[in-house]
Design a protein around this nucleic acid. Sequence first.
DNA 1: TTTTGAGTTGTTCGA
DNA 2: GTCGAACAACTCAAA
Length: 473
Amino acid sequence: MKTAIWWIRRDLRLTGNQALQAAHKNGDFVVPVYIIDSNLIESRYVGDKRLKFLFSGLSKLDEELRTIGSRLILRSGSPVKSLTRLVRECDAAGIFAEADHSPYARSRDRRITQTLPLNLVGSSAVHPPGSVLKSDGTPYTVFTPFSKAWKSLPLLGDSTFQPSPEQFARLPEISSEPFPIPPPVSQIHPFVPGENEAQRRLKQFLDGGSDAPIFSYDTGRNMLAYDGTSQLSPYLRFGMLSPRQAVLSAQRAIRSTQAGTQSKGAETWLNELIWRDFYIHILYHFPHVRVENFRNQNIRWQNDSSQFDAWCAGKTGYPIVDAAMRQLSESGWVHNRARMIAASFLTKDLLIDWRWGEHWFMQHLIDGDPAANNGGWQWIAGTGTDAAPYFRIFNPVSQSKKIDPSGVYIRRWLPELVDVPGEFIHSPWLMPPDQQKLAGCRIGIDYPTPIVDHRWARERALDLYSKSRRKSE
DNA sequence: TTTTGAGTTGTTCGA
DNA sequence: GTCGAACAACTCAAA
């Protein structure tokens, strides 16, 4: 009788799980284990909201495993030590885990492979790093050609695999630690963790024939008051949803519209999934991006810490920026476009180092992922892979008018602006004093005066960025 | 090796 | 109100 350990890391699901499938193939019974890695828990890039989502997700996975006669074995501390002990306890012949390509995960797994029979199977990306390369064998650094090459690859692996109860029923007596109590965070609109919820959301996003949200994703995702996005990122982050299942769904949706004209929404969504892979590959091939600019630029950041504090607190005086920042700290999730506006404001208007913002986002985002978060920040800061023109600076007022015309989103997250008339909701500092009194919102007292003037800040950023370009030569 | 075309997501200004 | 050009120069990818 052979025992196989299924080591769960970023694949908290049973469906379409290639590591689990491999464990099944190689063992007469499977021991599912999650190790709460003290290195990760103590990292300053971890936040309570994400931890809560993870811990609750582990309980959910345990429940799901129990329905097929198994349970989740939980251990904590150092992965090497925990696994060494577990292998001995259950006399396991092999450990099977989905490949995770972050720098930390790779060095951890390299170390473990030296002493333990660890087999990496599948990938947290749809196409693993190294599989999408230029004809000369080097990695892409521009998205569009990357996506073309990516699309030309066949999707390998079975995304419908379901474990059978028989192989779990024989789970021997193995001790598990108690499940950690999630940190007490009060989240507005919390994401319900788990595979079932992920499937439900995916279905909702795809269902409705030609009216399905996926088909209006290209425009709907930019309207903040309406949930036009899939809101699947936390589930993809922890593998509660298989990214390959998401891709197959997108491709199916595109095919279904081939005769029609409205495939744009589904194409856009597929591209977002490819971006996810792209940044996983970038971090893999260029690990220095974690701490440095992708490009060797020398931007002299101002790094004013009181302005940074105002940005974090959602008190910059620009409603759209502040609403995004409040949504982030209160709910742990923000629309992508709102993230970009807030990030552009930090890096371009305040000239604060993107790393500061990246760090803050990692502490608050439920979907916070080192590759995607880093890629997004470097892109917006103009230091990343994309040769983005440095003059691409978001205007917080015109963006606000475009994506939240009636101010529904702003009022949802900034209660002090609830009674500000639509005419002033995007720029409340323009309200005359009597209007301020009427709206119960005195500028400078109830809601801050803008901490910088955007017009001026834009000129300053243009100047500094063009200088830093010349300097870097 | 050289050349050519292109590069997620913007803003402003003036016709 | 709409539209196109300018904002500049550079790097990448592929022919």
